[in-house]
């Protein structure tokens, strides 16, 4: 033991250099986190500030007037709700049940792997390609014409792969030991799914579905090709202005129209439309998070 007790356990130059690296690493990561959050806040702030003169409940409930240069956005707001609701009513059951089959029943063979790969790749197909497919398949081949039903089905096809993927993930997160416990008392797969797997994955499944609301609400190309229209005369505050075989207005399409196609629109209106679209998405996502927290608190393992 030839160490000097006075200098034992004190900082060496190596330790100091490690501290410097540590500090640098921390600041770089923090900087990147800020680089992510700051533009987001700036966009939000800018939008709300520019939209302020037009923002009110009346703006949502009013119909556009004077060639869409003034007034509100009710027809587009309702149209978006129609499209989102119908598309998810189609894609959620198909997606969830298909995912249950793929995750719980299908054997892990090459076919299943190809399906898995296809699902992942479909989720990455650009929306304009879905739009073209929807045009060919629903508008022309199925003869639905340019209509809410064509647009909703196109959105459904677009959201389906993501719902399948997120549902599979939620199902796979249910511990295998629960399934083993069921098999070993002689439960069938369906009894296992019904009693154990679904109740414990429902929060993840629902979150996955609800997050698709924002995608369905925000996409412009698929509905522009298949069923969204520039303008449609609608009564103020009418909850059921459209029929399924008719075309409808939608927020994303409306935003595009009044920003680029109509001259002389009151300046704050496009911004206010954007804020409403954003607000709709935020409200739905917040609901998804609340639901998730609530369901998660009920399960404890």
């Amino acid at each position: 033991m030839n160490r000097d007790p006075k200098t034992m356990f004190t900082e060496t130059p190596l330790v100091r250099s490690k501290f410097r690296q540590e500090a640098a690493a921390k600041w770089i990561f923090a900087g990147m986190a800020a680089a992510m959050i700051v533009p987001l806040l700036l966009i939000l702030g800018y939008l709300v500030e520019r939209a302020w003169p037009s923002l009110s409940l009346g703006f949502i409930l009013d119909v556009p007037i004077r060639g869409m240069k003034e007034g509100g956005i009710w027809p587009a707001f309702v149209g978006t709700i129609y499209l989102v609701f119908i598309s998810l009513a189609v894609s959620a059951p198909i997606g969830i049940l298909a995912a249950v089959y793929l995750n719980e029943y299908a054997k892990d063979n090459w076919l299943n792997r190809i399906i898995n790969l296809a699902v992942i790749n479909l989720a990455g197909v650009p929306s304009i390609v879905h739009a073209l497919f929807g045009l060919g398949a629903f508008v022309y081949a199925a003869k639905f014409g340019y209509s809410i039903i064509s647009a909703s089905l196109t959105l459904a096809i677009m959201t389906l792969p993501v719902i399948v993927a997120s549902t599979r993930e939620a199902l796979a997160s249910v511990p295998r030991s629960f399934r083993e416990a069921c098999w070993n008392v002689g439960a069938t797969r369906w009894q296992t799914i019904q009693a154990i797997v679904l109740p414990n994955s429902i929060s993840g499944i629902l979150t996955g579905v609800i997050l698709q609301v924002s995608r369905a609400a925000g996409e412009t190309a698929p509905i522009m090709f298949t069923g969204a229209v520039f303008f449609k005369a609608v009564q103020k505050g009418d909850l059921f202005p459209y029929q399924l075989h008719e075309q409808c207005m939608a927020l994303s399409m409306h935003l595009y129209t009044i920003s680029t196609q109509v001259p002389g629109v009151k300046e704050s209106i496009p911004f206010a439309t954007a804020v409403v679209l954003l607000g709709l998405v935020l409200v739905v996502n917040a609901a998804a998070i609340t639901l998730r927290v609530w369901l998660r608190n009920r399960k404890k393992w």
Binding site: F178, E180, A181, W183, G186, A187, A195, P199, K299, K300
Partner: peptide, 21 residues
């Protein structure tokens, strides 16, 4: 029948795995 077989032959695991009910 595997169902009847597993009903008559119970199994207990390494990690206790009660169901989350």
């Amino acid at each position: 029948s595997l169902i009847e077989l597993r009903k008559s032959v119970g199994m207990v695991f390494q990690r206790p795995n009660p169901l989350p009910i």
